[in-house]
Every structure is written in C-alpha cells, then in structure tokens.
C-alpha cells in the first residue's frame, strides 16, 4: 500500500501542468477539436473523455463514438451553417461541443446553451426524430439570452389566452412532448406550454426547420410574427 501511495505521489510530482487551450476558453475539460475550419467560423469540439461541469457538477456528458460523431456532424453542420458568421457573433455563439448522453441534474437534455461562454453543448444521441429541429431550438436559447429585451417574455405571454399560465420552469412540468400539433391552439407542441422561453424556441425551431403546421391559429400567427420581427431587429439580413 505504501509503495502504491509512493508511486502515486511520484507520478503527481513529475507530471507537469498541461496547456488546455479549450478549457481556458470555454471552461469545459476533456475536449478536442473536431473541426474549426467552417464557413461561418463555428468551432466544433468533441468530448475525448466524459466531462462534468456546472456549479454543482450537475452537468454530465460522455465521449461519442467516432462513427456517431462523423455521422451527426454532417447533420449538425448542415443546419448550423445557415447562421451567418455576423449573426453568430451578435448572438455570442462560437463553440459547438459534441458529446453523448448529455444530462443536467440527471435529466437528459438535447442541448445546453451558454451565451456567456459562447458555447452550445449538443447531445448527438438525442432522438433522431427531432434532432435537426432541436438544434435550432437550442440556438434560439442563445439568441434569447443575448437579446432578452427583444424577446420579452411578458409581451409573449400576453399573446396567450388570459386563462393560460406557463409552468415555473421547463423541468417542472410534464408537458414535454415534441410532436408538432396538426391543429394548433396557440401552441405548436406540448413542450411549448412549459415556459415562455421554450414556447419561443419551439416556434423558432419550426420556422427554421420549415415544418410549421398547415393551419395556424391567430395566436400562433402573432407569435410567429413576433419571432420574425425580433430576428430582423438583431440582423436585417436574417433569412428564415
């Protein structure tokens, strides 16, 4: 046992501090560059080892397989290259972290946006049925966090009927369905009913993904117009 401790101590003492440039920049350990030569200067990184972050170490994600990574990267890049470099700069998004089985406080999630660190963590194993649309959903959270005054939640909530109230948070409700309603009543999915922010993200993601319902009720139309005008306030050239 003593010998084991001695060897451990020896290894600790001889190991030198390593430069972890990515950690210095976005405070997520165990990442490596996947691709940084992209048309809109987004930098794609991946988890070479599992990582744990967050104030209470409550965010976890794991290393994806090379095959999954290569396959999903194509889809992610295809979707995210629709955002121009200047738009991404305005909303403060630069790094896309690819990993699998992403969870926050034990709850699986498709992505974790952080506009302060300019980072979006993406679970590449998230349900394929919604995967592409959800990418835009998460991007909207970055947009929203960067432009809270444009996407005012009170204004947004006023579009709903007086009797409707959102939940206090997106995880304190069982309304988590992501299927697009064929007949809308102010909401585009069940998850839209969770919080104003999630509602906006759902509308935005459907706009970007191009799968809006055929029949749109007046409330939902107001919401769509609100999102569109907000985006144009950020970037006149934004193209939905």
């Amino acid at each position: 046992m003593k010998l084991f401790k001695f060897i451990l101590l020896y290894l600790f003492l001889i190991s030198s501090v390593q430069a972890d440039t990515i950690y210095q920049l976005i405070k997520i350990p165990n990442l490596e560059i996947y691709n940084i030569k992209t048309t809109n200067s987004l930098r794609y990184l991946y988890a070479k080892q599992p990582f744990t972050i967050g104030a209470d170490n409550n965010i976890n994600c794991f290393r994806p397989s090379k095959q999954d990574l290569d396959q999903k990267y194509e889809i992610i890049e295809k979707n995210l290259k629709r955002y121009s470099q200047s738009f991404l700069k305005k909303i403060n998004l630069k790094y896309i972290v690819l990993c699998e089985d992403l969870s926050i406080s034990g709850i699986n999630t498709a992505g974790i946006p952080d506009n302060v660190m300019k980072t979006l963590i993406v679970d590449i194993k998230f349900d394929n049925k919604y995967f592409e649309r959800v990418l835009h959903h998460e991007v909207f959270h970055i947009i929203n966090d960067s432009f809270k005054e444009i996407f005012n939640e009170k204004t947004w909530s006023s579009f709903n009927s007086d009797s409707f109230n959102y939940a206090k948070c997106s995880t304190c409700t069982k309304k988590i369905g992501l299927d697009t309603y064929s007949k809308t009543d102010g909401f585009i999915t069940e998850y839209s009913k969770s919080t104003a922010s999630e509602d906006m993200a759902e509308v935005f993601s459907h706009l970007m993904h191009g799968n809006l319902p055929k029949q749109i009720d007046p409330i939902l139309q107001k919401k769509i117009d609100f999102i569109k005008s907000g985006l144009l306030k950020i970037d006149q050239s934004f193209n939905l």
Binding site: A19, T21, L25, I33, I36, R43, K94
Partner: peptide, 9 residues
C-alpha cells in the same frame, strides 16, 4: 506552439 483557437479570441 500553434494555437488555432486563439484566432478571433
């Protein structure tokens, strides 16, 4: 050493 991620940072 080369630090490509420093560009635009």
């Amino acid at each position: 050493k080369d630090e490509p991620l420093y560009e635009s940072e």
